[in-house]
Design a protein around this nucleic acid. Structure first.
Lengths: 236, 236
DNA sequence: CGGTGTGAAAGTTTTCACAGCG
DNA sequence: CGCTGTGAAAACTTTCACACCG
């Protein structure tokens, strides 16, 4: 497959040095998610203001965000959905598949093993580990649970670069240490603790109770900031 | 129980009007989580710089964040953990229990029904709904699955104010509409779509694949910003 | 001392507004 | 036209630095 392209969309040659704010990257994921939905429903092109409206952002913000990475639009037309999707996947690194190692296969871990959404974005849970001897050896959602002793070897053999921690809070730091020792470069942590990690290991924490706490605050507090203006459903 | 207090910590009488940035509130939750761990391990007081170090923030940031809500510290001493925990819970609104309605009881929903972490922060899943007639009537993790028809009545009868959407993407907007119609004030959405909601309904989205995407970017991209300086585990 | 609370400065992100293009 | 890309301005957040306190 050759790369025949007419003109504008230059994914590469962006402000090449610039370091991009995290918040921009998180919006990128939302743009990508929405674009995928749009192509699925047959839409070919979209303008920054349409896309912004769907997600509750301004048109300027959409354009600025994309501007960090290059020029993807056609003046007077907007963005071609399929092209933009491809560009965003290149940027996010999800045009190729990622293998992920899961540590801890309890309630939540098992649910995540069965979650189809990962595969859709090119993430594959390639190995799963648990400390409980009763679980080791079982096959859940088509994946065989291995003992923790095998973690380092398996991760190295499969060239796994990302880990997912789904153990109880008390065991999370130990799990992280093992993943780091095995050479993992990034960790998603579902345990409700802050991990101590070397600076070259990236990490994202997901604390389910904290998400509810944030809602509790937003719903109750006189200090809560009014939401800018979310997509649709407003009343006059 | 009377409220006998010696002097400083004035939870109320903060800069009373000020509207607080979301990012500050999200750090509040992290402070609270860490403080709870500290008391559990017997620590009585903590300084802003200790707390900051544990979480990867500066001491000034910790103090500024708390400063939005009042004065909680003792110069020369720091903060008394138990007092600060109580103050933070007041701010976040989790000194009283919250009932939550769950819509969608698949893989992930069932795992969340069994998650102990919610209860620990005072959230109780008080009702669960599913469209699948095969599931309706079953009792999972001690909770009886109800049909969607009963959603509005149950939510009103129990005075439920928060909802959790755990249905597939295609059904998420419908689930949200039902929750809103029933009078819910805030929604945590685990489906990978952006919901259209009236502005008086708060919402927090949790997209598990997006969390991995963010890691993928951070691990791969030349555009990724170097992490400020995470807690511990650095090498010289 | 060791530590908080807080103005003022520095830095970052968002919004504005408009030239330029197909 | 309608819409992008982008400097410049505005808004917001973080860091600094220091008075003050027990």
């Amino acid at each position: 497959m050759t790369d025949e392209r007419s003109h504008p969309p230059q994914a590469a040659d962006a402000p090449s040095d610039a370091t991009v704010p995290k918040v921009v990257v998180s919006r990128l994921s939302l743009y990508l998610r929405e674009l995928q939905r749009l192509v699925a429903s047959g839409q070919q092109t979209i303008s920054s203001s349409q896309l912004g409206t769907l997600l509750g952002f301004s048109d300027a913000q959409v354009r600025k965000d994309l501007g960090f990475f290059g020029q993807f639009g056609y003046p007077g037309v907007g963005y071609r959905c399929d092209e933009l999707i491809r560009a965003m996947r290149d940027i996010l690194g999800t045009n190729h598949a990622w293998s992920v190692a899961m540590v801890g296969v309890g309630n939540l871990g098992q649910a995540l093993l069965g979650y189809r959404g990962f595969g859709r974005q090119n993430f594959v849970i390639a190995a799963a580990f648990d400390a409980d001897p009763a679980k080791v050896g079982q096959t859940i959602q088509g994946i065989r649970i291995q003992p923790l002793d095998e973690l380092a070897a398996t991760i190295r053999d499969h060239g796994i670069r990302l880990g997912m921690i789904v153990v109880p809070a008390e065991r999370a730091q130990e799990a992280a240490d093992r993943l780091v020792a095995a050479g993992v470069e990034g960790i998603v942590n579902f345990a409700p603790v802050t991990l101590a990690l070397p600076p070259h290991v990236q990490n994202v924490g997901v604390d389910l109770a904290i998400e509810l706490e944030q809602l509790s605050f937003a719903v109750t507090s006189k200090f809560a900031r009014a939401p800018a203006e979310p997509p649709g459903r407003a009343e006059p």
